[in-house]
């Protein structure tokens, strides 16, 4: 056990932070969401989407990178490229990559921008090159851009990875949910805590009220627990660990995002305030892969058989 990043890992995260430094400010115009093509380009040119394919680097480094980038108020497709695709295929796929929970899903994150779709077809995983396939960006409230096919896609063109790829896709998709949630939760909490230290009402900072402190502290415990749980799941590469992390992520996202908006008052309801860039991403993550009950059911299926011959 060693819970400190080594110098390589720290340097990688420093480099990720450096590469993304100019994207730490929220978009200037009030928007629900926007795909940041400049961020996407800079990360791609830096080779950050290929972390897992580098000698000596693995899913843990990719997970840390997803965490760091998910702290940004700006948005590009990160998780699928860093954590899912490298586990399914040795060669890099055209990106951005959209993850689809079924072939006929109504809307999916990044589908309008994506060059590749990875589709969970139940008993198969399909890799669909989206070149020439018409898609539209949907009017999403979420702070990720969502898209849909303009007409049902021609799946006969898709590359089929077979049934054994299905659990792999779901395991690493769950880790994407957990790591993106970790990044967004931390950034949203830190932003709100700084606001509550300075915003004064009744002659004192709002952050000095115990009613607020206790909920922030409780949220902090959830986030830090989730962080180590999710990083452990990246390290262990165990599907049970990933399902537990996604379960806890979707549970924590719900309560923490609610509290942070509550404490930001009406200011947090405006689109000029950046809080929604994190919280409405968290809401999207909360509903992914059949939401909390889906993750918990998967975790239970992986952790426990339904019946046992005899009780011990």
């Amino acid at each position: 056990m060693d819970f400190d990043l080594n110098a390589d890992q720290e340097q990688l995260q420093d480099a990720v932070a450096h590469a993304s430094a100019k994207y730490r400010t929220a978009p200037i115009h009030p928007v629900f969401h926007a795909y940041d093509t400049d961020l996407d380009r800079d990360l791609g040119q830096g080779g950050f989407f290929d972390v897992q394919r580098q000698d000596g680097y693995g899913p843990l480094d990719a997970a840390l990178t997803v965490e760091t980038l998910s702290r940004l108020p700006r948005c590009a497709e990160i998780g699928a490229s860093l954590l899912v695709a490298p586990k399914l295929l040795a060669d890099a796929l055209p990106r951005p990559i959209a993850l689809l929970s079924r072939p006929d899903v109504a809307a999916a994150r990044f589908l309008a921008q994506a060059k590749t779709a990875i589709i969970d077809a139940g008993d198969d995983v399909l890799i669909l090159d989206l070149e020439g396939m018409a898609r539209v960006e949907t009017e999403s409230l979420y702070a990720y851009p969502f898209g849909a096919f303009a007409s049902p896609p021609d799946l006969s063109r898709a590359r089929r990875l077979g049934a054994t790829a299905v659990p792999v896709l779901r395991q690493w998709w769950r880790l994407v949910i957990a790591m993106e949630a970790v990044g967004a939760l931390q950034a949203a909490l830190e932003f709100t805590v700084e606001y509550l230290k300075t915003r004064r009402q009744f002659g004192r900072p709002l952050g000095s009220f115990q009613a607020i402190q206790h909920r922030l502290a409780g949220g902090t415990a959830l986030i830090q627990g989730l962080r180590w749980q999710a990083l452990n799941a990246a390290w262990s590469q165990d599907p049970v660990d990933a399902a537990l992390a996604a379960t806890f992520a979707q549970e924590a996202a719900q309560s923490v995002a609610y509290d942070l908006h509550q404490f930001s008052g009406a200011l947090g309801l405006t689109l000029e305030h950046p809080l929604h860039f994190w919280t409405w991403r968290l809401k999207a993550l909360q509903g992914e892969l059949d939401a909390l009950h889906g993750q918990a059911a998967a975790a239970a299926d992986l952790a426990w058989p339904r019946r046992r011959e005899s009780a011990s």
Binding site: L222, G225, W228, Q229, T247, E251, A300
Partner: peptide, 24 residues
Amino acid sequence: RERAARALAVCDAAQKLNYRCVDN
């Protein structure tokens, strides 16, 4: 099954955070 998994998820997170403290 869902409730069992949700309880396990929290205990698992507590364990990993505990490991962090022991490491410190």
